[in-house]
């Protein structure tokens, strides 16, 4: 990373979960002190239990949603632990990666 870019390192956590689990994931984000997140509803794909349909016309609870949250690395561990616990008994995907942001105060 070029230091002249003046970016701050953060941790990005992406979760793909059922629409009906979004509310509890939001609670976990909030509990971990995340200041915001992005939700993309009705995502589709292929997982270990087969293809997952994208948008269901008249059922928003069983479609998949992609949630992306960015927070300081020191707070990521708490959230990861909660999400891992949440996903222990339900389908979902969790991806964790380093990321850099230009306005860190928005994520503190």
């Amino acid at each position: 990373m070029d230091e002249t870019w003046e970016l701050t390192q953060m941790t990005r956590i992406e979760v793909v979960i059922n629409g009906e689990d979004v509310a509890v994931a939001e609670d976990l984000f909030s509990g971990a002190g995340a200041r915001g997140f992005t939700a993309v509803p009705n995502v589709s794909g292929l997982g270990h239990s087969g293809h997952h349909q994208g948008r269901l016309l008249f059922n928003q609870r069983d479609g998949l949603t992609l949630l992306t949250v960015v927070l300081p690395p020191e707070r990521a561990g708490a959230l990861l632990e909660g999400l891992r616990s949440l996903l222990a008994n339900r389908s979902g995907v969790m991806l964790v990666s380093d990321t850099w942001v230009s306005r860190p105060e928005y994520f503190q």
Binding site: V24, D27, G31, A32, G77, A78, L83, S85
Partner: peptide
Amino acid sequence: MSGDDPVAARVRLLAQVEEAARS
């Protein structure tokens, strides 16, 4: 990861509450 971290404990609790509420 964060055994005694109060934030981690709260987040873990929220997941446990969710699991408990399934029934």
